[in-house]
Simulated assay, not measured.
Amino acid sequence: MKNLKFNRRGLIALLLPMGNLLYSQGGSGAGTIDAKISGWTTTLKTSLNAGVAAFAVVGAFLIFVQYMQGNEQAQKNFVRFVIGLAIFGLVDVITHVFI
Rank of each mutant, 00 (worst) to 15 (best):
Y23E: 02
N77G: 11
L11F: 15
A56P: 01
I37T: 09
R9N: 10
T95I: 13
H96S: 11
H96C: 03
L21K: 07
R8I: 10
L90V: 04
L90P: 00
G29P: 02
M18K: 01
V93C: 00
A56S: 10
G26M: 12
S28P: 00
I94D: 11
V57A: 13
V79S: 06
G84Q: 03
V57E: 10
A54Y: 12
V93Y: 15
A53S: 06
I83F: 12
G26N: 09
G10C: 05
Q75V: 13
Q75K: 14
D34A: 07
T46H: 07
K45N: 12
I87A: 11
T41G: 00
G10V: 04
T41Y: 13
I94V: 15
K5G: 01
L15D: 01
N71R: 06
L14A: 14
F88W: 08
H96A: 10
S24V: 06
S24E: 11
N71Q: 12
S47N: 04
M1N: 03
Q69I: 03
A74T: 04
V65F: 09
D92K: 14
L16A: 13
I63A: 01
K5F: 10
A35W: 06
I87S: 09
G59H: 04
G59Q: 07
T95R: 02
P17T: 02
P17K: 02
V65K: 12
S28G: 04
D92C: 07
N71Y: 05
T42Q: 11
L14R: 03
L14K: 09
V58Q: 14
K5Y: 14
L4R: 06
R9C: 03
A56I: 03
I83Q: 07
K36E: 11
V58R: 05
F64H: 06
V52L: 14
V65I: 08
L11H: 06
L62I: 08
K2D: 12
A30H: 03
L11G: 04
L44I: 13
G27M: 14
L22T: 04
N20C: 05
L22R: 01
G26A: 09
G70N: 00
N3T: 14
G27S: 07
V79A: 14
S38C: 02
G27Q: 08
Q69M: 14
F98K: 12
V82P: 00
L21C: 03
G39N: 06
S47P: 00
A50M: 06
N7R: 02
L21Y: 11
Q75E: 14
L11E: 08
I87N: 01
N3E: 12
N3Y: 05
N7C: 02
F78D: 09
G26C: 06
N71L: 05
Q69N: 08
E72H: 00
